[in-house]
């Protein structure tokens, strides 16, 4: 028992492969950054649909949010990787294949766009009507009102929640290894296949992710509290 425990905590093998594992971690960050940009832009689009004047637009926005917020990210990943290319192929009558990285970014971006859309929408609806009326009275176009009046306030208000969503997204990037994006978990399983020593390697992976995410979420917690106090003051 203690022998096994010692073996699983002997992380020297984890350290031995640090170069390739670090490369994997960089892939995690890459997937995260790309899919976060997708989620933010698609989420903003969906939020604007949800507050649109015309009900068919609102309806599409609501459908988008409900579908993607309720979809497990793994099934979305598999669907985007294996079904979406076939559907596009049927449409343009050509064989289409997605690079795993593209599938990963698309799937995670879409799933989290649903959450971001709700954050954006709450922020947009909290803006007093008077602000918009004032903008219109000055002769600002709707687009200018969005960029100069609405969004700056929305971003301030949703920042703490958005940071929490980013952390969830970063955690979710670990599943991209399942469609062969060479992230940290993927490289860990490759090394395990070679070395046949899952104990220290999985333990090392869990600890690595824990340390990163713990540091991030502690930072976000402290920052979020301060930010809220500043906004409310």
């Amino acid at each position: 028992m203690s022998d096994v425990l010692k073996q699983s905590l002997d992380l020297s093998i984890f350290w031995e492969y640090r170069a390739i594992l670090l490369q994997g971690l960089i892939f995690n960050v890459l997937v995260f950054v790309c899919s976060a940009s997708v989620a933010l832009s698609v989420g903003l689009g969906a939020a604007l649909l949800r507050v649109n004047r015309f009900w068919p637009m609102r309806w599409i926005g609501t459908l988008h949010v409900e579908v993607f917020r309720n979809a497990p990210d793994y099934i979305m990943l598999v669907w985007v990787h294996f079904v979406l290319p076939l559907l596009i192929g049927l449409l343009i009558r050509r064989r289409v294949e997605f690079h795993p990285f593209v599938s990963a970014v698309t799937a995670l971006g879409l799933v989290y766009s649903g959450y971001f859309a709700e954050a954006f929408r709450a922020g947009i609806q909290a803006i007093p009507q008077g602000n918009l009326d004032a903008g219109r009275a000055f002769g600002m176009s709707e687009r200018l009102i969005l960029w100069r009046i609405t969004l700056p306030q929305v971003v301030r208000r949703m920042l703490p929640e958005a940071l929490n969503l980013f952390i969830s997204m970063f955690k979710a990037t670990t599943i991209v290894s399942l469609i062969a994006v060479p992230d940290l978990m993927y490289n860990v399983s490759m090394v395990i296949q070679q070395e046949m020593r899952p104990l220290p390697l999985y333990t090392g992976a869990a600890l690595t992710y824990f340390l990163i995410i713990f540091a991030l979420s502690s930072g976000v917690r402290v920052f979020g509290e301060r930010w809220r106090r500043k906004i409310l003051a």
């Binding site: 699983s8 955690k171 670990t174 992710y209």
Partner: peptide
């Protein structure tokens, strides 16, 4: 438990716990 991704935790519980 909160700060480890569920996939990583799953692999860890499934392959490390039985040995330890």
């Amino acid at each position: 438990f909160r700060d480890t991704p569920i996939f990583v935790q799953l692999m860890w519980v499934a392959y490390v716990w039985p040995e330890v």
